[in-house]
């Protein structure tokens, strides 16, 4: 008995020490980690929209978040979009409730500042005030709309889909006509050397420039990636004079409607990404269409 108590005690102490060590590190690093993550996402989004060193982003480039919530009111279910709106010179948020058929239900002002809106916790507190029980709301996802000079440049959609092991987190960028601008894999745990190749340019860039029509039927094919196409896809490895303008146009035309070439020996990961991207893009295109028509009808001046 004494022995057991001793062991329990020793183990508890060890756990407490370990937990304290981990907790301390977490508190010490949380802020920097978050900042890094934020910068990472920001840079990825800028890159996805096609801006870079030789093509600097416009100074008034803005990323506006639209948060989607599922709101339940007793038996009824609504989609709630928390939309940034223009109110004079200031930015504010409004919650637009839409029923499942896409009809406008109601519009609520959300008392929250633009900075705080990025924090899930702060958002929830603010929403509590306007969506009081019995209404229940749950967070679904967020989409980013990039604007510059009062025009929409494109959409960046954070996607999360099951891969070979766990969820793959990715950013999918589309232009206002829903043509794919690019894909960035943010986080994943695919096998190194096999599924990890989804990070590579030669895979990711295959999605670039696929039209919405093509996207709907996009598939994975188990054929070797043509050498020329691979070189073209690996933009960061381009050397001067490797491709002429005509050459690029030719390749682009040739592979515009091509399906996605699977990564050798990683068909499952390739398929997971392709299906995931397809899903994210298709759903978003449908939702933003509905949302836009409602915003127009109700004359809500969204910031995008």
């Amino acid at each position: 008995m004494k022995e057991i108590i001793k062991i329990t005690f020793a183990l508890t102490i060890s756990c407490v020490i370990a937990a304290a060590a981990m907790g301390l590190t977490y508190t010490a690093t949380a802020k920097a980690k978050k900042h890094n993550h934020h910068m990472n996402v920001q840079n990825a989004m800028i890159g996805l929209l096609g801006f870079g060193e030789d093509n600097p982003a416009p100074s008034d480039l803005k990323f506006l978040n639209v948060y989607r919530y599922i709101v339940e009111d007793g038996e009824k279910k609504f989609l709630g979009y928390m939309v940034p709106v223009e109110k004079g010179s200031e930015e504010a948020y409004e919650m637009v409730l839409i029923d499942l058929e896409g009809n406008f239900v109601e519009k609520l002002e959300v008392p929250i500042s633009a900075e705080k809106a990025e924090e899930a916790h702060d958002r929830a507190t603010a929403l509590q005030k306007v969506l009081a029980p019995p209404k229940i709301f749950t967070y679904a996802d967020a989409s980013v709309i990039a604007t510059a000079g009062g025009k929409r440049l494109g959409y960046v959609l954070p996607g999360q889909f099951p891969g070979f092991r766990t969820f793959i987190h990715a950013l999918v960028a589309m232009d206002p006509k829903f043509e794919l601008l690019g894909l960035e894999i943010m986080e994943h745990e695919e096998d190194a050397g096999l599924g990890k190749e989804i990070e590579q340019e030669y895979f990711r860039n295959q999605f670039k420039g696929k039209t919405y029509e093509k996207l709907k039927t996009l598939q994975v094919i188990k054929k070797p990636l043509p050498m020329e196409y691979k070189k073209y896809l690996e933009k960061s490895k381009w050397e001067d004079g490797m491709f002429t303008e005509e050459h690029i146009a030719e390749i682009r035309k040739q592979y515009k409607d091509a399906d996605i070439y699977a990564i050798t020996a990683s068909t499952i990961s390739s398929k997971a990404v392709t299906d995931g991207v397809k899903n994210v893009a298709k759903k978003f295109a449908y939702r933003i269409g509905k949302l836009d028509s409602v915003l127009k009808k109700e004359k809500i001046h969204a910031a995008f």
Partner: peptide
């Protein structure tokens, strides 16, 4: 513990 600590420190200071 060490794995967690190293993971967090790397994420924060050596992205």
């Amino acid at each position: 513990t060490w794995v967690t600590v190293i993971d967090l420190v790397l994420a924060a200071y050596v992205p």
